[in-house]
Nucleic acid binder design. Structure first.
Lengths: 105, 105
DNA sequence: CCTTTAATTCGAATATATTCGAATAATTGA
DNA sequence: TCAATTATTCGAATATATTCGAATTAAAGG
């Protein structure tokens, strides 16, 4: 398969990250990743068609929020915790805290 | 003039806030507000037509990021620092830190 | 090879956002 | 009441995003 673009740490852009996080499905994805760690695309139980999900994975990856590791026919997605924390200290943990139950994200 | 909608603290929604912050002009606005505090709409030196600016002010206000105070024919805009901090602790300061020079927001 | 599995890409429909000139609204002060 | 000031709203053009079925790609295993 084609190369997957993922930005370098210091190319991660704040408005692009915010755009990636402005969609409820994508917030659901990163919430799940935060809770249960790296997951294959198929393992995330989100109730939308695969082609739609794939689009959201791409937005997250290209914004620098997630990292994708290829293993066989699967893609394993994880949060770029360290990179985000390096570039924008405190941002990710504030976001994840904001996604906790009762926060009506 | 018509009533200005601004959400209650606990109605501020994370994905809506991120949407509001996903635009470079709006990030410029909140950066300026963070630096020099409450400003009238006209005092913010941002090089786009008034009708466009007004649109961005509305997005920021309705997302809960800014507060608008009416005084005569002017609107004074400010960041809802306390409200945001109550609802999403640490988020605003991480954002403002991310907007500092050299961060290519 | 052929099939299965896992996921992406394509393409087209639909929905949402952005932009900005012109018109409008509200307030103040002459 | 008229004009000036400040800002919003309207409306229409343009641009961008979202959605999802169908086709495609890639790897693994028989």
């Amino acid at each position: 398969m084609r190369m997957l673009y993922q930005p370098d740490v210091n190319e991660i852009n704040l408005s692009t990250v915010f755009y990636a996080l402005s969609d409820q499905i994508r917030l659901d994805i990163i919430k799940t990743l935060a809770e249960i760690g790296e997951q294959s695309c198929g393992a995330l139980e989100i109730n939308v068609p695969n082609s739609t999900l794939s689009h959201h994975y791409k937005v997250l990856r290209e914004s620098g929020v997630t990292h994708t590791r290829i293993e066989g026919t699967q893609r394993f997605i994880s949060l770029r915790h360290n990179d985000l924390n390096t570039r924008f200290p405190g941002l990710l943990s504030a976001i994840l805290q904001g996604l906790e139950p009762g926060k009506s994200s």
